[in-house]
Write a protein that binds this DNA or RNA. Structure first.
Lengths: 230, 230
DNA sequence: GTAAGCCAACTTGTCGACAAGTACACTGGA
DNA sequence: TCCAGTGTACTTGTCGACAAGTTGGCTTAC
């Protein structure tokens, strides 16, 4: 039943987390559509578990904004193009904050770690492994936020991480389907980020972060045809 | 047992939410200190409930960053001065984003709502009701974020709201103890925010938001003497 | 035909129980 | 004295059950 989510990522995850990850993908891929009403019992039945882990999962999904808990049943909200662009707005805000903060310190250690992530992305690209690629894309950005050395910002990132993970997983799959040129272009964007950060110039960094997420939003606009998945 | 949290605020709240709110206050007021280890059974016993609602509460507190869930027991993290200042960093970031967005639209409706909150703060100040005051302080800022008309940003605010609520509750009590001059000064700060927003000038707004939270951080520095509550 | 009221099938919030796993003290042997 | 191994008392994750409350349809009266 649970096949979609890369099992490597969730080796020690609790049942609730697995169900949450699974449902995130199903909602993002429009298998569960906005307006659909789901209940704890229904999902528990579907996955052959009790309500307890499902309950945790639905709570998590409601924090993501993917569903809305109501008195009887939960209503799927889903994410349309605008919602995903808003998610990128927030990612841009967080990452700009983080990078500005990072740039006031020595970045050599950070740059080296980022380079490692980029290398792994290259490798994943070579072997056409889109979920591995997505993983290191996510790690790249998490590494930046972590190095900002700001607990609350990192907490913010962590709270959005499962959702971002699911979105990156879906969009990366699409990017791969466009061919290796597009994949290389994505890698190049990450190199650009690193270079901008090394400049340590406030305006340059802000511009580069803005450019990065503008590009991402633009890619979305192309790939997310309205209701293309029906 | 549960006496600290204003009961008006949580009339229809679930047991888990009440326990979470209560624990937030106890942690912020240093009755539960960083390093303390708590377990679901222990808290359930303390409040005379089963583990289920406690489990929800501890999950919420870990999302706040107030505790760290571990394999056996949860470790209280607490919030020191730096942590609260970091919380204000993030509030500043969110509110700046929201106000810049709001300022691109017609603000007259918003301004009127904000004025209502300020009026209620005035009234609460007159009757020396600090929790009522805190409530409308919170509402003031929530109103701004809501009017930004950006689901993801509002989601971010909502996810931090319970923690912000608890922090405002504690700090407002301290502000009131400083006397009515300080309370009036806080009200004045909110009026300044509104004026800056009406200017619709990007730089003016950014400056005003920055000033507001700088002031708040400064007030914190005065009131949060290290370990003053022991 | 229509509206009020009742009933049955759902829902969630909470509870207590069990199993698997962890930490720590205690025992025994050197 | 010290160290390895064992056992016990804890912990969490999951399960099934119950109660209170909601929804929607069906009956019944008009």
């Amino acid at each position: 039943m649970m096949l979609k989510f890369p099992s490597l990522w969730i080796k020690n995850a609790t049942l609730g987390d697995r169900i949450a990850n699974e449902l995130r993908l199903r909602i993002l891929e429009n298998e569960m559509k906005p307006g659909d009403v789901i209940s704890e019992n229904q999902i528990a039945g579907r996955y052959g578990t009790s309500r307890s882990p499902v309950r945790d999962a639905l709570k998590a999904l409601s924090l993501d904004g993917l569903i809305r808990l109501e008195r009887m049943g939960a209503v799927v909200q889903g994410m349309d193009l605008k919602d995903i662009q808003e998610l990128y707005d927030v990612r841009e805000m967080i990452e700009n904050f983080a990078q500005q903060r990072v740039s006031k310190k020595n970045v050599s250690v950070l740059v080296q770690k980022l380079q490692q992530s980029i290398d792994k992305m290259e490798l994943a690209a070579k072997y056409n492994d889109h979920s591995e690629f997505a993983y290191y894309d996510l790690l790249f950005h998490e590494t930046i936020v972590r190095h900002a050395d700001h607990k609350r910002i990192f907490n913010l990132w962590s709270s959005m991480k499962p959702l971002i993970m699911a979105v990156i997983l879906v969009t990366t799959e699409q990017v791969f389907s466009y061919g290796s040129d597009h994949v290389e272009w994505v890698i190049g964007k990450h190199r650009t980020i690193v270079r901008a950060m090394q400049s340590k110039d406030r305006a340059v960094i802000e511009k580069s972060v803005n450019q990065y997420f503008d590009d991402s939003r633009h890619t979305l606009t192309e790939s997310f045809r309205p209701d293309s998945s029906d």
